[in-house]
Amino acid sequence: MKYSINLFGYNLDCQLSVVDGKLNIDVLEEEQRALKQYLIRVLPKYGREASNASSLESLLELSLMAEKTLEGRMAEPKLKLPYEFQPEIKEKLIEAAALQDLSATQLLIRLIEKKYQEVMG
């Protein structure tokens, strides 16, 4: 079953399955890379140093520690992009973001990250 989960303020798609009464959550490598990049970008906001060399496991541990010290949940930094879009493009971006339960900025960041991974990957 395909499902979207929120880890540390980041929504990612996964596959849920139940085998012999045990729940398994499978996350595609592409989604894991995107989560890693997100955590590298967000953790410094919460006083945790992260680098590209950090493993996903160590980033998840840092994220758990960060959330334990917060009274809430981690969230992606909000930033205002210094770009002006044509009104119809802006409407499409906002509509697409709303369908994915994201802000337009978050969607734009994800699109840029995916394209970057395609080009550099």
Results as ranks from 00 to 15, higher is better:
K2F: 12
Y3D: 10
S4A: 15
L7F: 13
L7I: 14
N11A: 07
L12A: 00
D13I: 08
D13F: 04
D13C: 06
C14I: 13
L16D: 07
L16K: 07
V18L: 02
V18D: 10
D20G: 01
G21C: 05
N24E: 14
D26I: 08
D26N: 14
V27Y: 06
V27H: 08
Q32V: 01
A34I: 03
L35T: 05
Q37V: 09
R41A: 15
V42R: 12
L43V: 11
L43G: 10
P44G: 06
K45S: 10
K45E: 02
G47F: 12
R48N: 11
E49K: 15
S51Y: 09
N52V: 12
N52R: 09
A53N: 10
L56H: 09
L59H: 02
L62W: 02
S63G: 07
M65S: 08
M65L: 11
A66I: 06
E67W: 02
E67G: 04
K68F: 00
K68R: 13
T69E: 11
T69M: 04
L70R: 12
E71G: 12
R73Y: 05
R73W: 01
M74C: 11
M74N: 12
K78F: 01
L79I: 13
K80V: 01
K80Y: 08
L81H: 05
P82M: 01
Y83N: 03
E84R: 05
F85E: 01
Q86P: 03
P87Y: 13
E88F: 03
I89L: 01
K90E: 01
K90P: 06
K92G: 00
L93V: 02
L93K: 03
I94Y: 04
E95D: 14
A96D: 03
A97F: 05
A97S: 03
Q100M: 09
D101H: 09
L102Q: 10
L102E: 10
A104T: 05
T105Q: 13
T105P: 08
Q106H: 10
L107N: 03
I109T: 12
R110Y: 08
R110Q: 01
R110E: 03
R110T: 00
L111C: 15
K115E: 14
Q117V: 00
Q117T: 00
V119H: 01
V119I: 14
V119R: 04
M120Y: 00
M120E: 04
